[in-house]
């Protein structure tokens, strides 16, 4: 089965009102070409689950700028001033969750675990409305798994089967995101033949990955991803 599709075909799988799970820590390990394609596809009312909303006008920040987002779920939005402004103007809903809870909820979503208890955030404003329970004398809150219609991840390399290899800390949330979406699309810089990535080096096995898209808009220069024609 050939999993390689065009970026346009990939963007066409995203529908109005979908929840998108997106890998990346800021712009690091973010599927930038796929995001740009979705910006051009003009879908609306999206909920995005990602640690941040990229940066102002970059990465997921572009979906925000074009007013395609209804809601953002993640752990840190204050570095994107546009997100703060959109939230203040009631253009964007924000659900703030601790970074570890974001990672674990995505992991649970992909592992068939509907909810789990954690000590993180017990007794804080972020625990409001969440069930509390004690185990062995310590308090925990119940956190629900996160799933979505479409997962977008970024890996530096894939083989044609869809096995993924991430580059250094650009891995971040990508392995969890790759398990928790109904449709999982991986953007990669390079596609090689099966067997070329050593089995022990595969971070995300191909069974999680539905489609592969080659990054056609960004190149790495001076250690940073920059737009090809910028």
């Amino acid at each position: 089965m050939d999993k390689v599709i065009s970026p346009k075909e990939a963007a066409g799988m995203v529908n109005d009102g979908d929840t998108l799970l997106v890998g990346g820590f800021g712009l690091s390990g973010s599927p930038l070409s796929l995001i740009d394609e979705i910006v051009e596809a003009d879908v609306k009312n999206l909920t995005v689950v990602s640690n941040n909303l990229g940066e102002e006008g970059r990465g997921l920040g572009r979906l925000l700028k074009k007013k395609q987002l209804k809601k953002a779920i993640g752990s840190f939005f204050t570095t994107n001033r546009e997100a703060v402004r959109a939230w203040a103007d009631k253009e964007l809903e924000i659900e703030l969750i601790p970074q570890g809870t974001l990672a674990e909820s995505l992991r649970a979503g992909g592992a068939g675990i509907p909810a789990y208890y954690t000590r993180t955030a017990v007794g804080t404003d972020l625990a409001e409305g969440k069930e509390e329970r004690s185990f062995e004398g310590e308090k925990y809150i119940l956190e629900k798994a996160i799933k979505g219609e479409v997962s977008l991840v970024k890996a530096v390399k894939a083989d044609k089967l869809g096995n993924l290899y991430y580059h250094k800390t650009a891995m971040n949330f990508n392995p969890e995101v790759a398990t928790a979406g109904n449709i999982v699309i991986a953007e990669v810089d390079e596609i090689v033949e099966p067997g070329e990535i050593s089995p022990g080096d595969i971070h995300t096995p191909h069974l999680y990955v539905d489609y592969l898209v080659v990054n056609d808009r960004y190149v790495k220069e001076g250690g940073r991803y920059v737009e090809k024609n910028a």
Partner: peptide, 19 residues
Amino acid sequence: AVPGKSILGVGGAMDLVAG
């Protein structure tokens, strides 16, 4: 977080405090 300001960033702070 600071009272009276938007609460839009927590990162890993609560995870580290708890764990």
